[in-house]
Computed example of a mutant assay.
Amino acid sequence: MEFFADRAEAGALLAERLQDAHDPVILALPRGGVAVAAPIARALGAPLDVLVTRKIGYPPTPELGVGAIAEGGEPVFDLTLLSRLGLTPESVAHVVEDERRELARRIRAYRGDRPLPALEGREVIVVDDGLATGSTARAALRAVAGARPAKVTLAVPVGATETVESLRAEADEVVVLLTPIDFRAVGQWYEHFEQLTDADVLRLLDRA
């Protein structure tokens, strides 16, 4: 069974698989994706920024994600799960508005008044620390696609096989190092998987 020591090691290994990228922009999904993306940006000599996303939770159990939203994009829902729960996108509109406010807060915290880098015509690499349901990555990829980049690559160290396959339709390329059969959670594939804070994200961005 393979493990990554931490997110930095995972990022360094991913960077080896991304050497053919041409003048890319690296967009990390905070918080965990930033720690993976930082060594990629260093290795490729590429600019690093964040693409802020938020999970849209099932109201009685917010940990259960029924969708996600990314800055610059519209909400993306798991319509099958919504239907199974007896919900519609309209019935969780209040949750979406709450998450839009938190999205705006985090954008201000991470980027201040600085806008996202210009993505039109650029090669963009979207990075996260792993894929479970893939809802936030899907929302991020659709938001990036709306900016008309030349190419979009999703790069993650580990992911559930079905999720990885489902996201191939959302990106020009998906680079993933591990797709374990017994995948249960992203953190199980790291020896050290500490929760990052906003201060950690800012420190990594400052170094980049």
Rank of each mutant, 00 (worst) to 15 (best):
I69L: 04
E173D: 10
S91C: 05
G112N: 13
P180C: 10
D172A: 01
I69G: 08
A155G: 11
R207F: 11
R101G: 09
L141W: 00
A68F: 09
A28K: 07
R101W: 11
V144M: 00
R122P: 01
G134V: 03
L131E: 04
V152F: 04
L131P: 00
S91H: 12
D182M: 06
G73V: 12
E120R: 15
Y190F: 13
E194K: 11
T61M: 12
L87D: 07
L51M: 05
A185I: 04
G65E: 03
A140I: 09
L27K: 09
V127P: 01
V164W: 06
A12K: 15
A21Q: 08
E9S: 08
P39M: 03
R101L: 15
R54N: 07
I125D: 01
A145H: 05
D172G: 15
G57P: 05
L116Q: 13
I125E: 00
T80H: 11
R184F: 10
E191K: 14
A12E: 15
A109I: 13
L131V: 14
F193I: 10
G72K: 02
R100Q: 13
V201M: 13
P117N: 07
E165F: 10
A137D: 02
D129V: 10
H192K: 15
V52Q: 03
L81P: 00
V158H: 01
E97G: 09
L178A: 11
